[in-house]
Design a binder for these strands. Structure first.
Lengths: 211, 211
DNA sequence: GTCTATAATAAGATAGAC
DNA sequence: GTCTATCTTATTATAGAC
């Protein structure tokens, strides 16, 4: 689950591993090259030999993780034509990925806190690049269902904001949530399953055709 | 809207103002004392004269803002006994505060990214201190309504996670959201009103008694 | 490729004059 | 209270030997 891309030398892998850890814990600015070197079992000079600067190293780590995350999601989009089932599986997939790629949610948090510039960059790239068909597939799916009257006409943007916000929040605010509700353990299969069901229930309530 | 507490000297106010700006932009570690001093129109020595260290200054700024935020919310909790109306007003109040105290959401983001230690501290303080009655007022309100059958029995924790997540997300991911949906402007009265309605609609769907 | 040593500078904190 | 000058340490980055 933690492998970096193959076709990297063992040293590069060690560095990326260590860098990931430190950037996650301390953030882009708070991270220290010396600590990354220490955890990778090498020295600072070698970091610069391989990645030239702290900034380049950060971008390498960050983009690798985020791309991997979204690639996995788009690679396994549900195929069913039943829009209710599609929605259920989509939410389940998204929350499952948030759960399994916990590092990614942490990176997203850091990025958002800094203004999200790198995230915007990646999104623009994805939207203008070869990800476009996959993104459009999603939008088309809902648009078609809406035209067919299989789901209610509604503001799709707000619905997506609700879906993403409700899914993401427990993972990014994990420590706080677990403090306020001591019997909640976010990173457990049980909680994740409950969350999938709850988000689907609430989103589908907002989608299903008015009767 | 931006005033710091009164009973502060003009210099202290200037410092807190400047510190707030810089900590918001750069985060706790990324912020530079020299820049805070420059924006406050003074020099570094004076910062330490008033606040002893960067850490103390940060905590002062952070706690001031967050306390003010939650105090305002708890001070104006809706009073109605109609649970539907109560829920509507509660969501409206929360989103309105997120909108008006945009700096607070930014601080919350930074804090969460760092693991939320300071936030946890404040919550524990609030839960064990004189805020307890107000917090319990909220919980009791929903519990009572549930016992009376005015709302469906459901997992209140998940409902609150949905409420908070759906409300908070557009504000913390503003830059990204506005990149993906170029016609959305989060910090406008129009969007804020739409969001209030949407979150209420979706939450109430999850609350209203099964028929 | 990997290391040691060191440069160059950035940053928090303080001393001491006024 | 406020300033200038300075200390001390941390930190990124590089030079140069092996």
């Amino acid at each position: 689950m933690n492998e970096m891309n193959v076709s990297l030398t063992p040293t590069e892998k060690k560095i990326l591993q260590a860098a990931t850890e430190v950037f996650l814990e301390k953030g882009r600015r708070g991270a220290r090259m010396a600590e990354i070197a220490r955890r990778a079992g090498i020295n600072k000079a070698l970091l610069h030999y391989y990645f030239r600067s702290k900034d380049r190293l950060y971008l390498m780590v960050f983009r690798l993780k985020i791309r991997q995350f979204f690639d996995e999601i788009f690679a396994s989009l549900p195929q069913t034509d039943d829009i209710q089932e599609f929605t259920r599986q989509l939410i389940s997939l998204y929350i499952e990925k948030l759960y399994r790629h916990n590092q990614v949610t942490q990176f997203i948090l850091w990025e958002l806190a800094q203004g999200g510039e790198e995230l915007r960059h990646l999104f623009r790239e994805a939207l203008h690049g070869n990800q476009t068909p996959r993104v459009q597939y999603l939008v088309e799916k809902f648009r078609t269902a809406m035209e067919r009257g299989e789901i209610a006409r509604c503001d799709v943007v707000h619905l997506i904001l609700t879906l993403v916000g409700a899914s993401l929040y427990p993972f990014i605010a994990r420590e706080v949530v677990e403090t306020i509700y001591p019997d909640v353990q976010v990173l457990t299969p049980e909680f994740v399953e409950q969350r999938k069901q709850e988000v689907f229930r609430i989103v589908w309530n907002g989608l299903k055709p008015r009767t």
